[in-house]
C-alpha cells in the first residue's frame, strides 16, 4: 500500500490507483473526524510547514487542521510579514526552514510550477496547495470525494466545470482527475475564459451556453472568477457575466432535473453563483469543506511514509 510518488505536485502525475488509495483512506479519516476525540497519533514524529505565498482561508485552515488531527507539529508561514519582503528567494527561505528539521512542506504559490521547482532542490516531501494557474490537487481530490459520496461513483458521471477555466487551477486538476476516474467532462463559460485548444488537449466537451451545459450534466462544479489573475478585460462587467453565466435558481428550475452543485470557494455571491443556489440543498459546498480535512489527512498520511526516518 503506497503512492507511486514522493510528492503531491499535481493530479497529472498520479495514477488511478493512487487516486483510489487516497479516496479510500480519506473515507476512514472521515470516520475519525466523527469521533469524540478527533485525533490519531500517526504523524506525531513529523513536522510540517505550511508555506503560503498567496492568500488562502479554506485550504490553509484545512491543511492545518488535518496536520493537527494527525498529531503532526505544524509551522505556518505567510509571505506577507516575512523576510520575503527583504528579498529572500524561495529556495533560501525553504532551505532555512528545512535546516530546522522540517519533514514535509505544504506550499501555495502564485507562480505555476513553484512546487515542482522546489521538489528538484530539496529532500522533503512537497504537497502542492495551489500553484498559479496550474494545479490544486487536494481540491480536485476533495471534489471527487464529495461527488463520490453524493453520487456513489465517478465513473460515467457527467461533470461540467463552469466559469473561469482559463485561470482556474481547480479546473485543471479536476479535468485530470475526472478523466482518470472515467467521468465525462465538459467545460462551460464565455469563450474568452476557455483556452482555445482545451477540447482537443484533454478530449473533453466545450459548451458556451450555460443552460445547455446544465441540462447535459449530473454535477456542476462552479468556479470562481479569478479577477486577480486576469490582466486584461475578458468580459465587460460582473453583472453581464452573472446574467450570461451565473448559476441562478431560475435557471436550475428551467432544466427540469436535480443536479449537484459544487463550488471550491471562496464564493462570489451574485457573480458566478446566486445565494439561493449556494445555500440550497442541491449544493454540497459545505460538505466539500468538511471532506477537505479528511482528504488532506489521507494525503499527508500516505506521503509521510516516504520520508527517510532513521
Amino acid at each position: 500500500m503506497q503512492l507511486s510518488t514522493k510528492h503531491l505536485l499535481g493530479i497529472k502525475d498520479l495514477q488511478l490507483s493512487d487516486i483510489e488509495l487516497i479516496l479510500s483512506t480519506a473515507t476512514q479519516f472521515k470516520e475519525v473526524l466523527q469521533r469524540p476525540i478527533k485525533k490519531v497519533p500517526s504523524l506525531r514524529d513529523t513536522t510540517i510547514v505550511n508555506l503560503f505565498y498567496e492568500n488562502s482561508t479554506r485550504t490553509r485552515i484545512s491543511f492545518e487542521l488535518a496536520e493537527k488531527r494527525l498529531s503532526a507539529d505544524t509551522l505556518n508561514f505567510s509571505a506577507s510579514g516575512s523576510s520575503v519582503s527583504k528579498g529572500e528567494t524561495l529556495l533560501d527561505t525553504v532551505n532555512n526552514i528545512l535546516s530546522m528539521k522540517v519533514d514535509m512542506v505544504v506550499m501555495r504559490h502564485s507562480a505555476s510550477g513553484a512546487p515542482h521547482f522546489l521538489a528538484k532542490h530539496i529532500p522533503a516531501a512537497i504537497i502542492n496547495a495551489g500553484d498559479g494557474i496550474n494545479e490544486h490537487p487536494t481540491q480536485a481530490l476533495l471534489d471527487a470525494f464529495s461527488i463520490k459520496e453524493k453520487c456513489g461513483t465517478l465513473k460515467g458521471k457527467k461533470v461540467v466545470l463552469v466559469g473561469d477555466i482559463m485561470h482556474s487551477r481547480v479546473a485543471l486538476s479536476n479535468i485530470y482527475l475526472l478523466k482518470k476516474a472515467g467521468a465525462e467532462v465538459m467545460v462551460a463559460g464565455p469563450p474568452t475564459l476557455i483556452p482555445k485548444y482545451i477540447s482537443a488537449a484533454f478530449d473533453i466537451r466545450v459548451e458556451y451556453n450555460l443552460k445547455k451545459a446544465l441540462k447535459w450534466c449530473d454535477v456542476a462544479n462552479v468556479l470562481r472568477i479569478q479577477l486577480e489573475r486576469q490582466n486584461q478585460v475578458l468580459f465587460s462587467s460582473l453583472r453581464e457575466y452573472n446574467l450570461a453565466y451565473g448559476v441562478s435558481k431560475k435557471l436550475l428550475e428551467s432544466i427540469n432535473k436535480e443536479i449537484v452543485i459544487l463550488h471550491p470557494g471562496p464564493v462570489n455571491r451574485g457573480v458566478e453563483i446566486d445565494s439561493d443556489v449556494a445555500d440550497s440543498k442541491q449544493s454540497i459546498i459545505l460538505q466539500q469543506v468538511e471532506n477537505g480535512v479528511a482528504v488532506r489527512m489521507a494525503v499527508l498520511y500516505l506521503l509521510s511514509n516516504k520520508q527517510n526516518f532513521n
Binding site: 500500500m1 503506497q2 488509495l21 479510500s24 483512506t25 473515507t27 476512514q28 479519516f29 470516520e31 475519525v32 490519531v40 497519533p41 500517526s42 514524529d45 498520511y301 500516505l302 509521510s304 511514509n305 526516518f309
Partner: peptide, 21 residues
C-alpha cells in the same frame, strides 16, 4: 474498530486502514 492509525510500525510500512464503526 480499526487500529491502523495507532500502529507503532508506521515508519516501517503503511497499512491500508479498514472501517471503524
Amino acid at each position: 474498530m480499526d487500529i491502523t492509525f495507532y500502529r507503532d510500525d508506521i515508519r516501517k510500512e503503511l497499512h491500508s486502514p479498514n472501517q471503524t464503526n
